[in-house]
C-alpha cells in the first residue's frame, strides 16, 4: 500500500513538470494566443471527459446531458463573479455545488431508466436547462451573458484538472468505485453483494455533474461572452466522443480522448467542413478496429515502461 502513495507522488511530480513546461511556453509567448486558448480548452475538456466517464464508463449509466450541467455551473459562477464580485474560487465552488445538486435532483428519477431511455431523458434534461437559461433575461437570455471577467488562467485549469483526475482516480479505486463497477457489470449481482445500487448511481451522477459545473465555470471565465448555444446537445455529444474514443472506463483514455478531439478541432479550425467528416471517419474506423476505445479498461500505469517507473504500479498492487 505504501507504493500507492508513492505512485501518487510520482504522478503529481510528472504533472507539475508538464505544467512548468507549458507555463514557460505561455509566459515566454512561444505559444501563440490561439494555442494558449486551446491548451485551456483541452484542460477543461479533460475535466468534462473524465467526469462523464465516471457516469458512462465506470458506472455504465448512459448519460448524454453533460453539457447541461456545464451550463448550470457556468451561469451560476458568472452571475456570482460579474454581479456580486465573489472571488473566483468561491464562484467555481458554488457552480460545482449547484450543478452537483441539479445532478442529484435529476438523477433520482432518471436513473431508474436504463440504456437508451436514460440517454433520451438526460438529453431532455440538458435541453430544459439550456432553454430555461435562454429565457431568463437576468443572465442575458438568448443573446448571451456579456462582461465576464477574464479570470481563467492556465494555472487554474491545470490544477483543477489535476484535482479532478486524482479525485476520480481515487474514487474508482476505492470501495465506492468498486460498487459503481459492479453496477455496470451486473446490477442484480451488485445488489445481492450488498450494494445500494440507487445510491451509487446517484452518487456517480452527482460527482460527475459537479465536475462538469466546475468545468463550466472555467470555460465561461475564459471568454468575455457566453451564450446558451455553447451548451447544446451537440456539445454533450462531443464529450461522449472523447470518452468513447479514449475508452469507457479508462482515465488515461479520457485524457487522450479530450486531447485528440480538441487538437483535431483546433488544427482544422480553418476548414470547419472537413472537421466533421474527419471526426466521423475517425469514429467509424475506431468502431471497426478498436471498439473498446484507445485504452479500453487499461490505464497508462498498466503498461510496461510505466510499471517499471512506478515499480509495482497499477491498481491491484499492494
Amino acid at each position: 500500500m505504501k507504493s500507492l502513495r508513492r505512485n501518487d507522488l510520482v504522478m503529481l511530480g510528472i504533472g507539475i513538470v508538464i505544467f512548468a513546461v507549458l507555463q514557460v511556453l505561455i509566459t515566454e509567448r512561444i505559444m501563440s494566443s490561439f494555442w494558449q486558448l486551446n491548451v485551456i480548452i483541452i484542460g477543461i475538456n479533460v475535466i468534462m471527459a473524465v467526469s462523464l466517464n465516471l457516469i458512462n464508463g465506470y458506472t455504465g449509466q448512459f448519460s448524454l446531458g453533460h453539457a447541461g450541467f456545464m451550463a448550470a455551473g457556468a451561469y451560476i459562477s458568472v452571475v456570482l463573479t460579474t454581479f456580486f464580485h465573489v472571488p473566483f474560487a468561491l464562484a467555481l465552488i458554488a457552480g460545482a455545488a449547484g450543478a452537483g445538486f441539479l445532478g442529484f435532483l435529476v438523477g433520482i428519477p432518471t436513473l431508474r431508466l436504463r440504456g437508451d431511455y436514460l440517454a433520451i431523458a438526460t438529453i431532455g434534461m440538458s435541453e430544459i436547462i439550456r432553454i430555461c437559461i435562454m429565457n431568463i433575461d437576468y443572465v442575458g437570455g438568448a443573446a448571451g451573458f456579456k462582461g465576464i471577467p477574464h479570470n481563467t488562467t492556465f494555472a487554474w485549469v491545470f490544477f483543477i484538472m489535476l484535482f479532478a483526475l486524482f479525485f476520480i482516480k481515487n474514487f474508482v479505486n476505492s470501495d465506492g468505485g468498486r460498487a459503481c463497477l459492479a453496477i455496470r457489470e451486473n446490477e442484480v449481482a451488485a445488489e445481492s453483494m450488498g450494494v445500494n445500487t440507487t445510491k451509487y448511481k446517484v452518487m456517480a451522477f452527482t460527482i460527475g455533474a459537479a465536475f462538469a459545473g466546475v468545468a463550466g465555470g472555467l470555460f465561461a471565465h475564459s471568454f468575455y461572452l457566453i451564450s446558451p448555444n455553447s451548451f447544446t446537445f451537440m456539445q454533450s455529444f462531443n464529450y461522449l466522443i472523447m470518452v468513447v474514443l479514449g475508452g469507457l472506463g479508462s482515465i488515461t483514455g479520457s485524457i487522450a480522448g479530450a486531447f485528440v478531439v480538441t487538437f483535431i478541432s483546433a488544427a482544422l479550425a480553418s476548414w470547419p467542413e472537413f472537421r466533421m467528416i474527419i471526426y466521423a471517419l475517425a469514429l467509424i474506423l475506431l468502431m471497426f478496429y478498436r471498439p473498446q476505445g484507445l485504452f479500453g479498461y487499461m490505464e497508462i500505469t498498466d503498461y510496461g515502461p510505466f510499471r517499471k517507473i512506478l515499480k509495482k504500479g497499477g491498481r491491484d498492487d499492494g
Binding site: L181, E185, N186, V188, A189, A190, Y297, D316
Partner: peptide
C-alpha cells in the same frame, strides 16, 4: 452465473 464478467477475479 452472474459474475462481474469484465472485472478481475480479485475485484
Amino acid at each position: 452465473i452472474r459474475l462481474f464478467a469484465e472485472l478481475s477475479v480479485l475485484d
